[in-house]
Simulated assay, not measured.
Amino acid sequence: MSTRNEQFLDRLLQLAALLGDDTERELGRLGLTRSRAHVLWSIAGDGPKPQHALAGELGVTPRAITGIVDALAADGHAERRAHPSDRRAVLVALTPSGERMMQTMQRDHAQLADALVEGVPAEDREALDRGLASVIARLQELIEAAS
């Protein structure tokens, strides 16, 4: 028989799996992988970036980020541009197609957020948010301590 804490962890794992499966399905519908979507989100949020910065964010090798950016460029969602102040650097930027893709992903993200929160009684939402924030912070602490 599992403890209450184990049951809580099992629910979190089930939630993570469901969100992961839904993410994969929706990204697949859009013709994207997680890595490609991550690059698009990053550029949309912060503006054009050098490939080495994107590689660091994703925790991948320079060779891997080159392949991801090549794929996004082939799909018309991203392009490489000359860096305005460093002749050796190249920036990755969204194209108009990439901007439209981001609008779609942001819309879908907001719709899912609304649909999920609708299922939580209004009086429980703040407590749920605080609880999840605490669990995330604690997990980050445990990961850092184990590194």
Rank of each mutant, 00 (worst) to 15 (best):
I136K: 08
H109L: 10
V120I: 12
V135T: 11
D129Q: 04
A122H: 11
Q111E: 15
R130L: 07
A115P: 00
R130G: 12
A133D: 14
R107Y: 15
E126F: 08
A110E: 05
V135F: 15
L116E: 05
A133P: 06
L112E: 02
H109G: 05
E126S: 10
E118M: 09
Q106A: 11
A113P: 00
A115M: 02
A115R: 02
V120E: 08
G131S: 15
V135D: 13
P121H: 03
L116A: 13
A133L: 06
M105Q: 05
R130C: 08
E123M: 08
V120G: 05
Q106S: 09
A113H: 00
V120W: 10
A133E: 12
E118G: 02
A110Y: 01
P121T: 07
A113T: 00
R125Y: 13
A133C: 09
R107N: 13
D108P: 00
A115Y: 02
H109Y: 12
A110S: 05
L128P: 05
V135L: 15
A127E: 11
A127L: 11
D114T: 04
A113Q: 08
Q106T: 15
E126W: 07
D108N: 07
Q106P: 02
A110G: 05
E118H: 06
Q106H: 14
R125D: 06
A127H: 08
D124H: 15
D114S: 06
D129G: 03
L132T: 15
A122C: 01
R125E: 08
A127D: 03
Q106Y: 09
L132W: 08
D129S: 03
H109T: 07
V135C: 10
G131E: 12
L132P: 00
Q106F: 12
S134W: 13
A110L: 02
A115V: 02
A110I: 00
D114P: 00
Q106M: 14
D124G: 05
E126L: 13
Q106G: 09
E118D: 12
A127I: 06
L112M: 07
H109A: 04
H109Q: 10
D108T: 09
L128N: 03
A133T: 14
M105K: 03
E126R: 14
D114I: 01
M105T: 04
E126N: 04
P121V: 06
V135K: 10
M105R: 04
Q111W: 01
D124Q: 14
A115L: 03
